[in-house]
């Protein structure tokens, strides 16, 4: 099936090119097929619905344009989130695809994103004795404030740029981490 893997990637690469000039909704399977030089049917075989295409395109963009810097400590986590918010700001059309894909009803794999696991691992180290319920509350809040959705909401709903979004993110993270027993150690460095 090597050929179909290549075809799938070619479709996503072309969709990403088309995204530079039009919205995801305006990219028809027909136009995509013409761009790749394959039949519309082949695209339907790879991506039976637009939701499948959106999810796959978002994964591909994530890997190629928005790689998450690895982090272990809270300050590295903050830095990684800042870097991503700035990358989103530089390529908004791509970032909105990511925000949309994370909001749709899941299509295929419902594996949590890498960042979710990384945040959980970070909390295991930062707060090893914290009970399970509070740990999940903290992890879920940090995950949600570091998401493409946060960036998209603040950009569209509040007209904020990456610097202002990073500031709002830091303040939100502070309020959540203040709930940790070891709060003092996890504050942002001045």
């Amino acid at each position: 099936m090597e050929e179909s893997v290549d075809t799938a990637t070619a479709i996503l690469a072309s969709a990403a090119v088309l995204l530079r000039e039009r919205m995801f909704d305006d990219i028809s399977y027909r136009a995509l097929a013409d761009e790749v030089g394959i039949s519309e049917r082949t695209i339907y075989r790879q991506y039976p619905t637009r939701a499948h295409l959106l999810a796959a395109l978002s994964n591909w963009i994530e890997q190629t344009s928005f790689p998450l810097p690895p982090f272990v400590t809270v300050s590295d986590f903050r830095a990684a989130a800042h870097e991503r918010f700035r990358a989103f700001d530089a390529l908004p059309a791509y970032a909105y695809v990511g925000a949309r894909a994370s909001a749709i009803s899941p299509t295929l794999d419902t594996e949590p994103a890498y960042i979710t696991r990384a945040i959980e691992a970070m909390l295991d180290v930062a707060a090893p004795t914290l009970n399970r319920r509070d740990r999940r509350r903290v992890a879920a809040s940090l995950r949600y404030f570091s998401s493409a959705m946060f960036w998209a909401r603040l950009r569209t709903g509040f007209d904020l740029d990456a610097g202002e979004i990073c500031d709002a993110f830091d303040r939100a993270v502070d309020t959540v981490l203040a709930k940790l027993p070891s709060a003092a150690a996890t504050r942002a460095e001045p």
Partner: peptide, 15 residues
């Protein structure tokens, strides 16, 4: 951000 359906989607899907 918290008072939105994105919270429900993310907490359900990721956790």
């Amino acid at each position: 951000h918290l008072d939105s359906v994105g919270t429900w989607v993310t907490f359900r899907r990721e956790f």
